[in-house]
Nucleic acid binder design. Structure first.
Lengths: 134, 134
DNA sequence: GCTGATCATCAGTCATCCTGACGATCAGTC
DNA sequence: GACTGATCGTCAGGATGACTGATGATCAGC
């Protein structure tokens, strides 16, 4: 029922997911955005703030606030890059690594459950990626 | 590339759609939300503000502002219900009807184009509805 | 007529996103 | 070596959307 408008559907599916994620990640003191930042920082070589922002397609000013929060909770550290002293290299603390790994498992399980009503959840994901032009 | 997080994908697909809709509907002086309200009002029997809000799953206070905007542009009218004088019945003006019908065609064409990269866009829509539990 | 519920509205909060400006720093050029 | 333009991180501020709580008007049931 309700509406078959694409915007309506996407918006409320996203809202559902966001709420479910917030609840599932609350014990870790994170939300979905925080976890996304941790994930970007955790994956491989050290990144500057701008690089993190680019990976997550987040605004350059927003990423600063996000990292602020994570730094205050002791999950990441900013380090001035020695090669280019304009850049803040963001790295996980050991506490951040632990939190990330456990929260990441929660996220994966939650997404699996969230997509459970679908016959082919991989295809759904692939569709979303197609719509992003990736 | 980028991220395969569900939240990321949904959020940015929605952002793309919202931007495309805003651009396509700009000549009509509407955005996607306005059009959704017009659509709810246009479909059948007269609705109170709360009923419109419920259909669109929009907050009760937000719908008031939305209708304010549409009323100022002369697209809808509030009428105090005669049966229940607490309720504001919202109806389209003739101008509103014209705008709605033409904007609605734009939206449908835009959604068709937007989903064109997919092999089976109906299935994608159905998936979204499934995830909303409808 | 009284009580509790409902509708619309208002004020205010909160989170997200974005713009524009700034100082610090870098790279390239003369 | 000094100058120019670009880049990185930061800050202040604005715009938007979502929500809470309170209020007045109105209704329904007793």
């Amino acid at each position: 029922m309700a509406s078959d408008r694409l915007g309506y559907l996407l918006k409320h599916v996203l809202a559902r997911l966001t709420a479910a994620q917030a609840e599932a990640l609350a014990p870790h003191g994170l939300n979905g955005r925080d976890l996304a930042v941790l994930s970007a920082v955790a994956s491989g070589e050290p990144l500057s703030q701008l690089e993190v922002a680019a990976r997550l397609r987040v605004d350059r000013t927003s990423i600063g606030d996000l990292i602020d929060g994570l730094e205050q909770r002791g999950l990441v550290e900013r380090r001035r890059s020695t090669e280019d002293r304009r850049r803040n290299v963001v790295v996980l603390t050991t506490e951040g690594e632990r939190t990330f790994e456990s929260a990441e498992r929660v996220r994966q399980e939650l997404e699996r459950e969230f997509l459970a009503p679908l016959r082919d959840s991989d295809r759904f994901r692939a569709d979303l990626r197609l719509l992003l032009g990736e």
